[in-house]
């Protein structure tokens, strides 16, 4: 292959926007809003798994809590015809993520699993990704957080603790994905089995409203769930192409 050919080929390849289909895995999640009760178990599970700091009351007052996964509440109507709709909101791992393009130092980018990753120690803290994220799921470390001894003994050794000035967000429990891949490799399997890896929130969900898996595998639970006619993406009109898909809440008549 001549040098010129190599250049033209590289040019063509790198000018192609839709390279995400080539990824080994394409992790995705569905959340059935008809099953979600908004109990918050996922929120605490996430906090436990990912070493989210205990920020203290003061930080909450200032609006500086760090919750990679939060439950949003939307009331509808007035008493007595009032309804509460809840929706768990975490990083949507958009394939066309607005946050990724804006980082000047490439601290956030799309990895080979279709995940939107945040590289903590590359982050310089411009916080622009948080501005560009329409889902408001990026959380900034406004100061260093400490764990009162011996609460620090609970910290998950597979997850780094973030320092001040660094942005952080949901990783789809990338450490568990990593572990599952390692296990698959140890077992001589080429791929991770469906259901073998579950983020902490999915694992703990008391009403099993969340399903996680590989979208590239058409047989996976998540792929089937994605085909559900109730599926929709939050703020889909922004073309973020998110990997978290919600299933509509059903409004039944009595």
């Amino acid at each position: 292959m001549s040098f010129l050919d190599r250049i033209t080929e590289g040019w063509r390849k790198n000018r192609k926007p839709g390279y995400y289909e080539d990824f080994d895995y394409h992790w995705a999640m569905t959340i059935d809003l008809d099953q979600c009760s908004g109990c918050g178990a996922c929120v605490t599970a996430c906090q436990a798994e990912n070493n989210l700091p205990i920020v203290g009351e003061d930080a909450f007052t200032k609006g500086r809590e760090i919750k990679w996964l939060r439950i949003e509440h939307y009331w509808e109507g007035e008493y007595p015809d009032v309804k509460l709709n809840v929706i768990p909101m975490m990083c949507q791992h958009c394939d066309s993520a607005p946050c990724e393009t804006v980082c000047p130092v490439s601290a956030t980018y799309h990895n080979q699993d279709g995940l939107n990753t945040q590289i903590y120690n590359r982050c310089i803290g411009t916080r622009s990704c948080a501005v560009y994220c329409p889902y408001e799921v990026r959380y900034f470390n406004y100061n260093d957080h400490t764990w009162e001894s011996p609460l620090d003994q609970q910290l998950n050794p597979d997850v780094s603790v973030r320092e001040k000035g660094v942005m952080e967000k949901c990783t789809f429990c990338i450490q568990r994905i990593r572990q599952a891949k390692d296990n698959a490799k140890d077992d001589g399997r080429r791929r991770v089995r469906d259901g073998e890896v579950q983020p902490a929130c999915v694992q703990t969900c008391p009403s099993k409203a969340m399903v996680f898996g590989d979208r590239n595998d058409p047989q996976s639970q998540v792929s089937q769930s994605l085909n559900d006619p109730r599926s929709y993406k939050v703020l889909d009109e922004l073309n973020t192409n998110s990997s978290v898909v919600y299933l509509k809440k059903v409004e039944a008549e009595g």
């Binding site: 500086r64 803290g125 948080a130 900034f140 406004y142």
Partner: peptide
């Protein structure tokens, strides 16, 4: 840390 300023989530 930036916490010395008044910024918060989502006004980063």
């Amino acid at each position: 840390g930036i916490g010395a300023a008044g910024m918060n989530h989502p006004s980063v």
